[in-house]
Design a protein around this nucleic acid. Structure first.
Lengths: 243, 243
DNA sequence: CCTGATAATTGATATAGGTCATGTTTTTTT
DNA sequence: AAAAAAACATGACCTATATCAATTATCAGG
């Protein structure tokens, strides 16, 4: 038995000003006194478990969300039932902007593993943005980022080969790991191959085969969901980036 | 010689409150007195000619733009030089949000034909949104729409067959024609086949062949750039929408 | 610790749609 | 009006990647 008392950290609210993700998240570029205003409205509900929905297509949009830990995927559904994953959201990344157009979400947000999120309620955003110019500006930046992200993905799906897509995916993950001051050459995939395949617009089998190829070419090392990037230059040259 | 005096309509400013596109554009949902505030800052520079750039990738973002007449395409460039068209913007539709992330545009915006646009200068947006809650709300709606649009396109590129893509494209155009109270079953394409192909992630030849197939099946009538939709139900069933 | 279920790999085969080549029509330039 | 250049169409062929099938590895629950 531990001599420490067990406490339920679910109910411990971590303030934005103390959050180590603040530079990636809502608070980016905000002043100290603005942050305390933000803290007052940001809620942290209990964590999501694997496969829990954060929100569903068609549901009324109540908030925008920031991932605090774990990973959340967003996916659109088509008329005839097939789905396209449009994003994997890592800690510090935001989601829920799809509800801005007409007040209802247009995609599903599902936790890939146990994850906690922070909520910024929509009904408070208006007044909050009015009081905090920093937040207003950050909101615009966030949306711009989302749009740019989507554009990159459109380019990937529209113009790249399967090999380029997977290389691009790994590079994107690596870069985002670095942003979080985590190891950028060694990380775990939080999603199954199926989800990677769906996101990149190809078949699972192709993902498997490409992982095998990259491994045999000593570009990466794959152990189940654990990825080590051995030759990032090769990855970059595959997607066509000059050094 | 005409007995009427020639006037340069380029310098005639049409106010937002009088614009017949106002319900699709910035003014949507705004009150009468808010509109006059909007009018005061919206600029209408001289028209763009075919192939003129409205803005370029990397350029500092100065404004967000609304198409008033004509059509403007936006395209992203990849590291290795290939391009993906991410949108065709019809009158009343907005563009330029890609500059919100870090103040610089990340795509090129090019006129497909002689087009005029209205500009809402970025440096005035902040104070204007502060004064006009209606604009603030509309800005959010606009961004949500952009995100939803991109998601639909991701689904198209990630999951649909060439046939479904082209059908989907025609249906989207038709719906947008209707929004503008134009004929929704008969319209002219403003873009060459090459651009359609690029946008839909396929080869020009495939676009040509599919137009021919659709025509032979009496789904549409194609005469060069003129499209008549003969059987919209068939188009809907191709993309998998139930009636 | 087993056991069915899920996830991942690997091989064989098929095909949607790309690429190449050629011809025609339309548009632009001189 | 002629020439050059785009834009578009159509046929023949090919390839990247999907699909199908079978096998192995991993995981979640009793």
């Amino acid at each position: 038995m531990s001599k420490f008392k067990e406490i339920n950290i679910d109910h411990l609210k971590l303030s934005c000003s103390e959050c180590n993700l603040r530079e990636l998240c809502f608070p980016h570029g905000m002043k100290e006194e603005e942050l305390s205003n933000l803290d007052a409205v940001v809620d942290q509900p209990k964590p999501l478990h694997k496969n829990d929905f954060l929100y569903r297509d068609g549901e009324r949009a109540m908030a925008i969300y920031a991932v605090r830990s774990g990973c959340v995927k967003t996916m659109t559904e088509s008329a005839n039932g097939d789905e396209q994953i449009v994003g994997f959201h890592l800690p510090g990344e935001l989601l829920g902007l799809d509800g801005f157009a007409d007040g209802s979400h247009t995609c599903n947000a599902i936790a890939l593993e146990t994850s906690s999120v922070c909520e910024l309620p929509l009904d408070q955003i208006e007044s909050l943005c009015h009081r905090l110019p920093g937040l207003q500006k950050q909101m615009r930046r966030i949306m711009g980022k989302e749009v740019n992200n989507d554009h990159k993905l459109l380019l990937l799906l529209g113009k790249m080969t399967a090999e380029e897509r997977l290389a691009s995916f790994l590079l994107s993950l690596s870069a985002r790991m670095e942003e979080r001051h985590w190891k950028d050459n060694e990380f775990n995939l939080t999603m199954p191959r199926q989800d990677i395949a769906n996101y990149l617009g190809m078949a699972v089998e192709t993902v498997s085969r490409l992982f095998a190829t990259f491994q045999s070419e000593k570009i990466i090392d794959v152990d189940r969901r654990h990825i080590s990037i051995l030759d990032i230059k090769r990855l970059r040259s595959i997607v066509g980036e000059c050094e």
